[in-house]
Computed example of a mutant assay.
Amino acid sequence: MVYETGNRTVDDAVERVLAGEVLDRRDGLALIAQPVEALAPAADHVRSEFGDDTVDACSIVNAKAGNCAEDCGFCAQSVHFDTGIDTYGLLDPEEILDAARRAERDGAQRFGIVVAEKGVSKERRPDEWDDVIRAIRLVRDETAVEVDASLGILTEEEAGILADEGINHYNHNIETSPRYFPEIVDTHSFEDRVATLEVAKDAGMDLCAGVILGMGESPTDRVDAAIALQDVGVSSLPVNVLNPVEGTAMGGMDSADISTEAILKTVAVYRLLHPHARVRLTGGREVNLAMDEQHLPFEAGADGILTGDYLTTGGQSAGDDIEIIERAGLEPNRDVNDFDPDAVKAASDDDATPEAPPETAAGTATSTASQPDDD
């Protein structure tokens, strides 16, 4: 059966993707210029043909917060900016395990251990490295979630150890296109980030790498970022939308420099350029999309979500996220952690009060770290 929207550019792209062809930069630029009314259902069709009509949920813990020497203009954890966030050293492995158990309770399929620094170094900080490895083992052995990590730049030796310890996905976002990257970061290069992804992939880990939309980039930059991720080869593509944090280089913006329509078009194009990846809606969605809009990306090709709090900003409850997924006509993935969605929704309703929102995996791992934020 031929899929038809009546838009020749979109219909041709869908036909080629379903036939196994990989779309290129020229295709991406042509597609992102098309109306969302044609792009969104076409991308949703491709998702349905290649996927399983589930949305995969991950959750993270901010395992080491603040004092990062890098100058990423969007990041509240950079030492270059005065943002007033709580800072702390690496959490005790048992605290990281507690956060993973909360993620498991909330229906996450995977759990990411994230640190704010250029790289966890086995050579320069061996005690910290040992604690990271112990935390990975605890989460791996005592929960049903898959263990992911975002530990910055890796050596080949470090990547090999992480792969041997069972790290499923290694996260290292490219943030934006190669052209626009120098506009947001000075202290390292786009090529540095790609090199780490290649080291992780060569060690045998799957890759989770994506972007932040709304930092002033153009639609062409959004396409070029997706093409760069094709070149690397990712199985999870997180799509963040900037949540400007006061004190950062981008903190003077009232909101992300992108419309709801442009977010949906970008998600749809990413699905068509990455038909087999989990296109994952992540940080900033709550502040850039109204509650009655948050299901729309999942009708435009998205099939993954980051649930719970982010690195330095709060998220929303796992129950709310499940309702968003169901509103889009999909269901939560339960391949790894076979939880009861109705129980998660009920627990979220029971726990939530204006004074005390329900605990989520990140931001509540320790009393020292009151409410970590986004990336």
Rank of each mutant, 00 (worst) to 15 (best):
H276K: 11
R285S: 10
Q230A: 13
H169F: 15
I167N: 09
Y270H: 12
V199R: 09
E157R: 12
T353S: 14
V17K: 14
E331W: 08
A108Y: 06
G308T: 01
R137T: 13
A268L: 07
K118L: 13
Q371W: 03
V22E: 15
G210E: 08
T260G: 08
A262T: 13
L162M: 09
E198Q: 15
D221V: 05
R124K: 14
T87G: 04
S78C: 02
G283V: 00
I153L: 15
S259W: 10
D92E: 13
L162H: 11
A262W: 03
G216A: 12
D373I: 07
F298N: 01
A43E: 06
A256Y: 03
D206C: 11
L18T: 03
S78N: 01
R124D: 15
D206Y: 14
P238G: 09
D131C: 14
R101C: 04
K118C: 06
C68P: 00
V132N: 03
R16T: 05
I325P: 00
V2S: 10
V211C: 03
E49K: 10
L229S: 07
E217H: 08
D92V: 06
N243A: 15
A30K: 00
T143K: 07
P219I: 07
I174W: 04
N288F: 04
L289I: 01
D224R: 10
A300E: 04
T360W: 12
D164P: 05
T220N: 08
I174R: 03
A43P: 00
A116E: 12
I136L: 05
E15I: 04
D92R: 05
A302K: 00
D27Y: 01
P182R: 09
G204C: 13
N62G: 11
I174E: 01
L90K: 06
T364D: 10
H188Y: 14
R25S: 02
K122N: 14
R193E: 05
F74W: 10
I184R: 11
N173I: 12
I167A: 09
P41L: 09
